[in-house]
Amino acid sequence: MSGRHGIPKSRWLPAYVTVYLAFLYFPILLLPIFSFNNAATTTFPLAGFTTKWYASLWHNTALLEAARNSMIVGVSVAILSTVLGICAARAITRYRFRGQRAATGLIMAPLFLPEIIFAVSLLMIILQLGVELSLVTVILGQVIFCLPYAMSVLISGFGGFDRSLEEASLDLGETAIGTFRRVTLPVVAPALVSSLLVSFTVSLDEFILAFFLSGTEPTLPVYIWGQLRFAAKLPGVLALGSVMILISILLLTLSEIIRRRAEHRLRAQGALNA
């Protein structure tokens, strides 16, 4: 493409992209560097290599408790947002109905809203109803926040789905449930897995809703927030943060690989059919 005339090729652009990537990655690579530093302060030059900050994580019961809470919340949010996302994404890609745009708009709205505003609004309605704050309220709130992400993954997964495959299966005498299991599911499965992983990652990192709605059971980001006040606790937080970043990157990479393999497969099938 770059050889076509009219589309400028420029020498400075690749350099700019490099600087930009460095700007993006520098803060994230910095935390792991200091987490292995044998000093309680975050300054250069480094004071030597240690893994003691990581070792200290294992004996911290408050942290392990928070990690357990994050797991419970993350798994529940991933499942709930994906199930709700499937309903909406399927309805939007398969059918045409009045109010479709308004409904989609409402579900996608959290992308265009300051998070603090729906955190506050949820807090008000929950306290008004007399419901006690707990992990359940965090889950309910985070599902709203994760739905737009789950939806975009699922819509693009369902969008390329050939409807005639299902019709053929039904015509050939397969039941509706059988069609879903044997025709629909294999095609959309990668999108489902992607949606689960992305929702889990978003939930794992989400702070504002967890901060407002978690009551006495903190998730990991809420726990970290509490630790930030104490300078002495910083290296431990850096170690924990590095572990969380690593988990996030692994989950996202996994989700991307699954999505791309499915895309390749669909394209190959399309070429075969043509």
Partner: peptide, 26 residues
């Protein structure tokens, strides 16, 4: 139209209950 609405309704109801209504209350 009916199938589309039926299928989207769980998600829509969820968003109405936990996004739209709370904002109205605010």
């Amino acid at each position: 139209e009916a199938s589309g609405l039926a299928l989207i309704s769980p998600t829509l109801l969820y968003a109405v209950a936990l996004l739209f209504l709370p904002i109205l209350i605010v």
